[in-house]
Design a protein around this nucleic acid. Structure first.
Lengths: 209, 209, 209, 209
DNA sequence: AATGAATGAGCATTCATTCAT
DNA sequence: CATGAATGAATGCTCATTCAT
């Protein structure tokens, strides 16, 4: 495709990453071939190996880079809300998570759906990071419950549910849609926070058993 | 593996489906090879073609069968709650969705993550079914909003969020865990319903902008 | 090349072995490609893998088969001369070794020159067999020395020297040449036996030091 | 390996030759890659081409250099024994050949086993030199036979046999072994000379036919 | 001289699929 | 129905070689 004639040096690596992101998102890691990748970059297949050591390594590189960026951004948000109450911190977390997942939908999608294609060592590495990320949310939920603000029967289940809901955004969100990034974040923020407060009159009636 | 020596007749097709479900869940459709499949069934590769017409067709068959079963079960639940109010119908939907997704986690996982491997015709077919399923939930939400029971700024966004949360269960649920299927359904049922009721005092404060 | 249309079953494996022997002898194991091999057999490259598991395995198979045949033939010769004196047994060994190495020059050449291309396990295996073969000669030399028939300062060095001399035959022998197989065997038999007898008047003068 | 950081000038060419000798001896010419060679030298692959014109040319260079050295050394020995009798000249040849082949075992091994990897022109060139070398031995044997000192039914066969025996030394000789270079030369010298003298009583009995 | 990136051909191996037996 | 052998295209990766810097 876009044959960047004479593209050299670090530019090529950047082009490989970008093209890899696109193609893995479109076809999946297993289905993407290095010939496709090379064509997209505008380079011969063999040349890829001046920049990556292995197809598997490219996948790990993309996912790891994404995870590192995710943590770096989360750290900024946490710094800004340090010392505030659980509600404020949860709001900040939700806004961050939703907007980040909309902006980086390809990285996020790959980081979740291609985990199984990582070889064992890389897999453990990334899954470890994902668990850390989940724990950052759990810590907020735990705080809120301890302060009597949230009613949460099981912290982990709640966290998994919230993350799944928020992350789902990168599957269906279209920039051209009715709602903006912030609108969506706001809608989910409301829904989640209401879902955690104890005094809703409907809650205790919810049983089919 | 389970070498069903001398497996004959319709048993073989059933063994293929079962093994296919397992292997696609483990490795993904692209990564599963017919040689793996044949070995798992205890048959030579060529013999598979007495039962399936193509690898792609096996995938479609598995997903379509799953979707049909999903709709059949949903129909039963809807029949049982026909005429009841939105809250009761939503509770029923959530319980059904969660428990079904726990029981059929492999089918569900494949039905979502391998969509992209379907060829165009099959893809349209299945995506159409998935949209119908989403609409069944949206109908309940719409009803509840019309009756002033739910506060929902955007029906589609809410539905996607709820489905993502509930479906996530098939990623992390372990039968040996703390909570039973019904416990998890109850937790999510409470969280979702509270999230939709209008009078929570925190809801209007949720803004970082 | 010789496209044996519809060649099936064990015939193909035999054709692969034969072609492999020829091509490895001509080009060396590393330099032979499976495309060459397939063309020689008259088959597609992929089809080779219905019969061999790996290029490396073909090499091992060829060498191992050769070594087994070598030992089987040697056993016959040893059986025929069992109970005879060292001189007779040595003569028999030399005749056997020379004629066998002329008749099976390709197998012998490969079995010596491609050892280094065997992977470690296979290498150890084959080298072990070669050592056993050398020991069969050493046993004869040892016997002869014990009975005072041979004058041998170092059994191993003598054995290596004799084997190298005899084996060299497969490098230069041409069936169309002046001497027949038996002629060559006779010449080497004479030379080796004279080389081992104690009373030659020249032997003790051989020193440059 | 031995990363000669910043190796410059003619030193690099010498390092390439040395590393090439080592790697070809270890892996064979076809199996040695220029990447291995570059790594061994401590240089990037591209840099090799400032010193060699082609992989093939390196091989030829190594073998030709070896052959030239071999002839140069042989010339010295011949000069020293010029005018002496065949027995003395043969002893000198054997001592020279054995000790040279022990000292330069890698060059010798490559010069024999990688002939087939030379392209046609180079091949003819080197094979011609090898024939000349063989003829130097044949000349001695011929002289000895003419003077009635040696009993040799076929000069060429005898020469090939003797050379194979002596050359074999570079396959098994270890400096740490029981025998020194000179010991081995002595053993072979005795064996060969005895093998050529006419009056051994065993010689005429050597027949199995 | 040395480097790093590029090339294009080639490699061993695997794949889904076909088909005579 | 099952099998084993065949096909032909494709895959990830490596190679010797080139060349601008």
């Amino acid at each position: 495709m876009a044959r960047t004639v004479g593209s050299h040096g670090p530019k090529t690596m950047e082009a490989i990453r970008k093209a890899g992101l696109k193609l893995i998102h479109e076809h999946g890691y297993e289905a993407m071939t290095l010939r496709q990748l090379a064509a997209e970059v505008g380079v011969q297949v063999g040349s890829l190996y001046n920049h990556i050591s292995t197809k598997q390594d490219l996948l790990y590189d993309l996912i790891k880079t994404h995870m590192d960026a995710l943590f770096a951004e989360l750290a900024k948000v946490e710094a800004k809300t340090a010392g505030q109450g659980p509600v404020e911190r949860l709001k900040a977390f939700i806004f961050f998570h939703v907007t980040y997942h909309i902006l980086r939908k390809r990285e996020v999608f790959i980081g979740a759906s291609e985990l199984r294609s990582l070889d064992p060592n890389h897999y453990e590495d990334i899954v470890g990071l994902r668990r850390q990320y989940e724990k950052r949310l759990m810590a907020i939920l735990d705080d809120g419950r301890a302060q009597g603000l949230f009613q949460i029967p099981d912290i982990a289940v709640a966290a998994y549910g919230i993350l799944a809901m928020l992350t789902g955004v990168c599957t269906w969100f279209r920039p051209s849609g009715r709602l903006s990034r912030e609108d969506v974040a706001q809608v989910y923020c409301d829904m989640v926070l209401r879902g955690l407060v104890p005094d809703s009159q409907l809650s205790d009636t919810c049983s089919l058993r």
